Amino acid sequence: MTTIRQKILAYLEKSRSASAREISRALQMSAATVRHHLRVLASDGRLELASVRWRDGRGRPEKVYSLPRAALGDNLSALSEALLTEAGTKPALSGDEVSRMEALARHLVGESSFASQPLAKRLNLTVEKLNQMNYHARWEAGPQGPRLIFSHCPYAAIIQKHPELCRMDEAMLAEWMGQPAAQIFRTGKEGSSVCVFALGNKAPPSVSPIT
Rank of each mutant, 00 (worst) to 15 (best):
S30M: 07
A174I: 12
A70K: 12
I23T: 06
C166R: 04
A105G: 07
L38N: 05
Q183F: 00
A198P: 00
M168Q: 10
K129N: 02
S30F: 13
Y135F: 15
G110C: 02
R53Q: 14
C195R: 03
D169N: 12
S113I: 01
L38S: 07
L67V: 14
L12G: 08
N134R: 11
M172Q: 13
V196N: 02
T2L: 12
T2F: 01
A103Q: 14
P204A: 13
V64C: 03
P154I: 12
R167P: 00
A18H: 05
G45H: 04
D44Y: 15
S24K: 06
G142Y: 12
R147I: 13
S66M: 08
A71W: 03
R5Q: 13
I184M: 08
H162R: 15
R21W: 02
M133Y: 06
A137W: 02
S206F: 07
P61V: 14
L47W: 02
S17P: 00
H162Q: 09
V34M: 10
E190W: 10
S94C: 11
Y11W: 08
V98H: 05
S66Y: 08
R167F: 13
E164N: 00
A87Q: 03
R58T: 11
S151M: 14
K161I: 04
S99F: 01
P143Y: 11
R147C: 03
G191N: 06
K161L: 09
K14H: 01
L123K: 11
T85C: 01
S206W: 08
T126W: 01
A71Y: 04
L104K: 12
E62W: 08
S193V: 01
W176I: 04
E48W: 06
P205W: 03
G57A: 05
L104H: 09
E62T: 15
K14I: 10
L84W: 13
P118A: 04
Q183I: 10
P180A: 05
K63A: 11
M133E: 11
A70F: 11
M133V: 05
E102K: 06
I184W: 01
A42R: 15
L93I: 11
L119G: 03
I4N: 11
I159Y: 07
R147T: 11
M168A: 13
L104T: 00
P154F: 03
S43N: 13
T187C: 02
P68C: 12
W54M: 07
M101S: 04
E62S: 15
E13G: 10
A156S: 13
G88E: 09
E190C: 07
S66W: 13
G45M: 11
K7Y: 03
M172C: 12
A18P: 06
S112V: 09
L148R: 00
A70L: 11
R5G: 04
Q183V: 03
P146H: 10
R46P: 02
L173C: 10
F114Q: 14
K14G: 01
A137F: 04
W54G: 13
G45E: 09
E62Y: 12
A156F: 14
A103G: 08
T33W: 12
P204D: 05
H152L: 08
R106T: 05
